[in-house]
Amino acid sequence: MIDNLILLLENPVAFVDLAINGVLIGAIFVLVAYGMALVWGVMNIINICQGEFVILGGFVAFYFSKWGINPMLGVAAAFVLLLIVGWILYRLVIFRIVDRDLFTSILATFGISILLSQTMNEIFSADVEIARHGLGTWSLFDGRITLEQIKLAAFALAMVIGLALVIYMKNSRAGQAIRATAQNARAARIMGIDTNAVYARTYALNAAICGAAGALVAMIFTIQAYGGLAFTVRGFLVVIVAGLGNLPGVIIAGLSLGAAEQVASFVFGLEYQLAFVFGMLVLIVIYRQIRLGFRRQYLR
């Protein structure tokens, strides 16, 4: 551990290289987290099957690349397909748990996550797959910093999707309806908003965002039917840090997580990559709890 730290301090360029790559990867976490925050904020559901949506989207890109179609188009295709999957899931299961307590929703979406990963295993087999993108790598400083074009493209794409979402939520009638429902579902119903339709739209939108992120994952890393959990955990951490309904916060937290994770796995070793994320989660929750204890407005 200490020798790794020294190694990093001796090679500041490697540190920069890691951080840049981490930030670029972080854009994918931002997408997953944003979808999660949306569903959580509007429907009060913690969606455990985020990761499975990601992997399913990844398989869309995989098939595009297998059929010789540019997998970049797979991002759009995954978005559309997962929109449909999300809508169906809402109509089948999720509408039953909207008004229930958090525990019920966690249990239900956990069930969906198991079901989805097993189904993917049946259909796509347990093989590790990738989507080929054909993009190259830029080398800076004699190859000591490498910028993968695909990661840059993913970053840009994630930002575009994020921006489009902000505009959609702020300006479109449908977006306004979602926000109104989030603020007060009962009042929204009285004002004539079909909250059930809003929930369906929200859940489908979340699945679609995850699907797009998954297509990017298939082009940058690898996908495997059971590989979803890691993305759910990261999304959860980002939402916990940033809070609900705080898009700038989600972006900053997601990108920082990406960078922090890379540096941490360099120093502590790769086997602690996800353990680091969990550790952060615990620390942040404890910190929150302590701060909450000092607040005056809470009467005990």
Binding site: L18, G22, I25, L270, Q273
Partner: peptide
């Protein structure tokens, strides 16, 4: 001497070490 986690999906950190060492 890095250990890879079972949920492995990113070896960037290890490979950056390889680049330096």
């Amino acid at each position: 001497d890095d250990k890879l986690p079972p949920e492995l999906n990113d070896m960037t950190a290890t490979l950056r070490k390889v680049k330096v060492v």
